[in-house]
């Protein structure tokens, strides 16, 4: 059985949503991981959920990146472990240097909470192998979601195929109007070079059941399930 760990920092607020989807929708064995612990409890898959870890003091995700649990997650990720950081979790992965770049305030300075469309850029990954649609409808809820990276590094990111999701129209067209926050190249989610760590601003855990208006987010968790199953965890 796949074992998933959901990290809790002071100020996390999507931890229970992530736990619910992992345990009750995906049927994974699921445990919470406390930020002060270093033990990952033998998890195969780590979710760093959204929220306002440490009140977003200093910079979003900055204080969390220095926590004991992140030390272990860095090691887990370096060894090829599957990690998803969602929203504030994405910010934490960037501050931890597990992913390149930074997330700054939305271009219009507003907190944006709405459904968006994101185009899946690659399907042969641990996070998208079961995406049966090219464009997923998943909500965002953030104030600091404008992805930034220096041009030369951005070119490198694109060249390596590390951009996994882009804000798009429902038809999958990449336009300025479809970009809610000013992210460079409409970036909504990226992976590390090795492809085992994903950071994304949209919340797949809020779109994994029909009753919530979309279950496109579940395709991402299904993909992780299929990837780990093939790898021999089940």
């Amino acid at each position: 059985m796949i074992k998933c760990g959901v990290v809790i920092f002071p100020g996390s607020n999507c931890d229970h949503d992530a736990y619910h989807v992992s345990k009750h929708v995906m049927d994974f064995e699921t445990v919470f991981l406390w930020h002060k612990d270093e033990d990952l409890k033998g998890c195969d898959f780590i979710i760093i959920p959204g929220g306002f870890s440490y009140g977003d003091y200093l910079r979003c995700g900055a204080i969390a990146s220095f926590s004991p649990i992140m030390k272990s997650i860095k090691k887990f990720a370096m060894d090829g472990g599957i990690v998803i950081g969602i929203c504030n979790g994405f910010q934490i992965l960037l501050e931890s240097s597990l992913l390149p770049g930074a997330l700054i305030k939305n271009k219009n300075l507003k907190f944006i909470c709405k459904f968006v469309d994101i185009r899946v850029e690659k399907q042969d990954t641990p996070f998208t192998n079961s995406c049966t649609k090219k464009v997923l409808r998943i909500p965002i809820a953030h104030h600091d979601g404008c992805y930034y990276l220096e041009q030369s590094e951005l070119d490198e990111l694109e060249k390596n195929g590390q951009v996994l999701f882009r804000y798009s129209t429902p038809d999958g067209e990449i336009t300025e109007e479809a970009n809610p926050n000013g992210s460079l190249n409409n970036i909504a989610g990226i992976t590390n070079r090795e492809g085992n760590v994903l950071g994304m601003m949209p919340h797949p855990e809020r779109a994994s059941e029909l009753i919530l208006g979309s279950f496109d987010g579940k395709m991402i968790f299904n993909s992780v399930y299929n990837f780990l199953k093939k790898k021999g965890n089940n």
Binding site: L58, A102, I104, E150
Partner: peptide, 8 residues
């Protein structure tokens, strides 16, 4: 290492 994020 702490007070600034050298990326931005």
């Amino acid at each position: 290492d702490v007070l600034s994020n050298p990326v931005i």
